[in-house]
């Protein structure tokens, strides 16, 4: 797919970190909220072009981890290095510009904007038109708008969202389509790392399968690295190459699906001590 995407700028001309092909390196990440420790001393890495899942019981701190990685929360302690660039002190929109995008557990689209409007906002960081250029109506602005719209429609195709819906309001879409729109919006910023927070929540088996196919396709066709939070074990086991398990804010296990499936600590976390006794 040809996209009018400018490659994310590397500050100071640094090379992307090719060491072990890790696109994300998290060390000692801790987040405290007024006495509640949501994440405690987490280390983990994500290899480029891999699909990694984070699982764990409710309240384990998975979304907080996402929020820290995507720049939403400032970590209380620890470091995050994305594509060789440390993320400390960067605002969320800067993180998007570096090449990270996310979706949300409970869908957070711009409900009263159109479908295509949502995708175009996602593309905001890769567009260059300034306010004064828009006022002057320069040709470059018009052309950029046209290119962006075409790109947005291609993205709708990629996530199997019918182009017919382009001018409809996001809130009128059926649930499954809304989830797909959120992914299209995230893709529009041309990310290298995509964070999906429970992408199959509330879906029936058929929709779930479509979503897993989509996730695989995104990695295959776009070369994306994907980090998932998931509860549906079939999805997790089926699509992930690596799984990290959190419980009470700490990482308790990490490994391939096979390893995790048989890890006693994981089983205990989900089912309680009795299950392994």
């Amino acid at each position: 797919m040809t996209a009018p995407v400018t490659t994310p700028a590397q500050p100071d001309g640094e090379e992307p970190d090719a060491q072990q092909g890790m696109i994300l390196e998290v060390r000692g990440l801790t987040k405290r909220f007024d006495g509640l420790v949501a994440n405690k001393d987490i280390d983990f890495d994500i290899p480029r072009r891999s699909i990694v899942s984070i699982i764990g019981p409710n309240g384990a701190g998975k979304t907080t981890l996402f929020n820290q990685i995507s720049g939403f929360f400032e970590p209380t302690e620890g470091t995050i290095v994305f594509d060789g660039i440390p993320l400390g002190g960067l605002a969320p929109h800067d993180v998007v510009e570096l090449g990270m995008a996310r979706t949300y557990q409970n869908i957070r689209l711009f409900q009263n904007m159109t479908v295509i409007g949502n995708v175009l906002v996602g593309h905001h960081v890769r567009m260059k038109s300034q306010w004064w250029q828009a006022i002057l109506g320069l040709r470059s602005v018009r052309e950029e708008e046209e290119r962006s719209r075409a790109y947005a429609l291609e993205l709708l195709d990629m996530v199997s969202l019918s182009r017919r819906y382009a001018e409809d309001l996001a809130k009128n879409l059926p649930y499954g389509d809304q989830r797909r729109l959120e992914i299209a919006r995230a893709l529009a910023s041309g990310p290298k790392l995509l964070l999906l927070d429970e992408p199959t929540a509330g879906m029936n088996p058929m929709e779930t399968r479509q979503m897993t196919d989509l996730i695989a396709k995104l990695r295959r066709e776009l070369g994306l690295t994907i980090l998932l939070i998931e509860h549906d074990m079939k999805v997790v086991m089926g699509v992930s190459e690596r799984i990290t398990v959190l419980d009470y804010g700490e990482k308790i296990a990490e490994g391939t699906p096979q390893e995790i499936r048989t890890n006693p600590k994981v089983i205990e976390a989900y089912l309680g001590k009795q299950a392994t006794a």
């Binding site: 929020n67 939403f72 929360f73 400032e74 002190g89 605002a91």
Partner: peptide, 9 residues
């Protein structure tokens, strides 16, 4: 509602 982090701006 996600809280805005503190940073020197």
């Amino acid at each position: 509602m996600l809280k805005r982090p503190e940073r020197l701006t």
